[in-house]
Design a protein around this nucleic acid. Structure first.
Length: 454
RNA sequence: GAGGUUGUAGCUCAGCUGGUUAGAGCACCUGAUUGUGGUUCAGGGGGUCGUGGGUUCGAACCCCAUCUUCCUCCCCA
């Protein structure tokens, strides 16, 4: 007999945690559906040919590969081993676990292009796997919760994403959050404006750390990376931006007036703002942050990130627009925009702020006590009636000691206990005990249903 | 992938320079109360000290390896 253990970087979700996670996911899915997104699930296992080469060299390393079934060494020839992993891997593994939801989605779109109503809006909530080194908040198995629209470059999608973010976090009672927005084209424009065209990736890696390490260190890093002093001096405009969205737009318009692409980016942001305004969104928690640079390797337009204020935690949601999603699967020129919710982080935020509703973990409302076969028999029709009335109820399955049965109700947080003994059966009135107050009285079944539903 | 860190009862942790039978709180079980939980009281069970080697008369404690935990970097959700 060996001690059981979890595989590294994986977790169990017990009933209590599941109740809270389900609450979060149900809220998000409800909003997705309300905005016309359709559900999609794809297999945990994909062919490695679908997954490899999509996430860079590092990504290929982090893919979980599945050993071929049967004699997995069949195709390996003597001598292959000396050639190393690159030679042996394709001969022993043809499948792997999905690394994210975007690539399987792209595969699905490419395979079903003729059947899909374009633009195609889908949401997908499934676990993904990465052979990463686990840390707090980083696991080898975790859920992604994505919604994307492909097949249109309409900025209406961007506006609707902003709306969905507000609806989701509003519904979760999270009052203090900020939706940060930027545009890849603005970043490209900034690189041009400071005389370092084409180097926005490098620029952004440094700028992105601004709120973490401060202006001086960012400047030092840029200098190290070989940016001219004049370029760095030119960035002062960026460091002096305020939270006021209209002011920022005006400042950038002037700063980037010589960059066509930069202007385009600002125009896109203005149009999105106008659309959001058109929806009549009340009290928008929207900010234009020109230093926001996440996922630069594939985002081409809008970039989003949501921060929970007052909680020491990274972003709780992020997304953006990308071009050519399905290009590697033979379907070019398909633009898409998507948003992803960080379920684990949202869980931590709600937990820390105590925002989970009381009844999120409540299941059974009433427990029927079992004395003997006689009372058990009497309980059956009562159970059925309670359940027909929509009351989650259960009968303790054995005639264990009352203490044990009451303990069970206690531990499960069941608010009512119904005692059905010989006295009660005779009277056709049963003892209903409120576990919180300790009150206990005899009621008819109809009265009991009323009491429990009250 | 690089560096550091952690592991003792179901859980949280004590355990002296290496020295007899490894402790506590909580949880669990039994009884006080054979038709009533949460409180109280009395009693009880539970540990190959992460695992495998080594040093030693003797190892929870020292050494090596390995797994695990957490942290920093890289990268990311």
């Amino acid at each position: 007999m060996s001690k059981p253990s979890l595989a590294r970087g994986t977790r169990d979700f017990g009933p209590e945690i599941m109740a809270k996670r389900t609450y979060i996911l149900d809220t998000i899915k409800f909003v997705f559906k309300k905005f016309g997104f359709l559900p999609l699930e794809t297999p945990a296992i994909e062919n490695l040919s679908v997954l490899m080469g999509k996430y860079g060299d590092e990504g290929d390393q982090l893919l979980f590969k599945i050993l071929n079934s049967g004699d997995f060494l069949k195709k390996v020839k003597p001598g292959d081993l000396e050639e190393g992993t690159k030679t042996v891997l394709p001969k022993v593994a043809e499948k792997g676990l999905r690394y994210d939801l975007t690539v399987p989605f792209a595969r699905f779109v490419a395979m079903n292009r003729h059947d899909l109503a374009m633009p195609f809006k889908r949401f997908q909530v499934q676990p993904v796997w990465r052979a990463d080194r686990p840390q707090r908040g980083r696991y080898r198995e975790f859920y992604q919760c994505d919604a994307d629209v492909v097949g249109t470059d309409s900025l209406l999608c961007e506006a609707e994403i902003i709306l969905m973010l507000h609806e989701v976090f509003g519904a979760l009672q999270l009052k203090d959050f900020t939706v940060k927005m930027n545009n890849r084209k603005v970043l490209t424009g900034i690189a041009e404006a400071i005389g370092a065209p084409g180097r926005e990736s490098e620029l952004c890696v440094a700028i992105d750390k601004l709120d973490k390490i401060g202006k001086e260190k960012v400047e030092a890093e840029l200098s190290e990376r070989g940016f001219e002093n004049s370029s760095i001096a030119n960035l002062q405009t960026l460091f002096s931006l305020t939270d006021d969205i209209h002011e920022t737009v005006a400042t950038l318009k002037d700063w980037l007036k010589d960059s066509g692409i930069g202007q385009k980016g600002i125009e896109e942001i203005e149009e999105v703002l106008e659309l959001v305004n058109g929806f009549g969104l009340e009290n928008p928690k929207l900010m234009f942050d020109a230093t926001l640079a996440r996922g630069l390797s594939y985002y081409t337009g809008a970039i989003f990130e949501v921060k929970a204020n007052g909680v020491q935690i990274g972003s709780i949601s992020g997304g953006g627009r990308y071009d050519n999603l399905t290009g590697t699967f033979g379907l070019p020129d398909l633009s898409g925009v998507g948003i992803s919710f960080g379920v684990d982080r949202i869980y931590d935020v709600l937990d820390e702020l105590n925002l989970f509703p009381e009844d999120a973990s409540q299941s059974t409302r009433v427990l029927l006590i079992n004395f003997d076969s006689e009372s058990q028999k009497a309980c059956l029709p009562i159970l059925s009636k309670l359940r027909s009335a929509g009351i989650a109820s259960e009968l303790y399955p054995t005639d264990a000691k009352l203490k044990k049965q009451f303990d069970y109700a206690n531990k499960k947080g069941i608010p009512f206990v119904l005692v059905v003994g010989s006295e009660e059966i005779k009277m056709q009135k049963y003892s209903l005990k409120n576990m919180a107050t300790g009150d206990q009285n005899h009621y008819t079944l109809d009265e009991i249903i009323q009491q429990i539903n009250a």
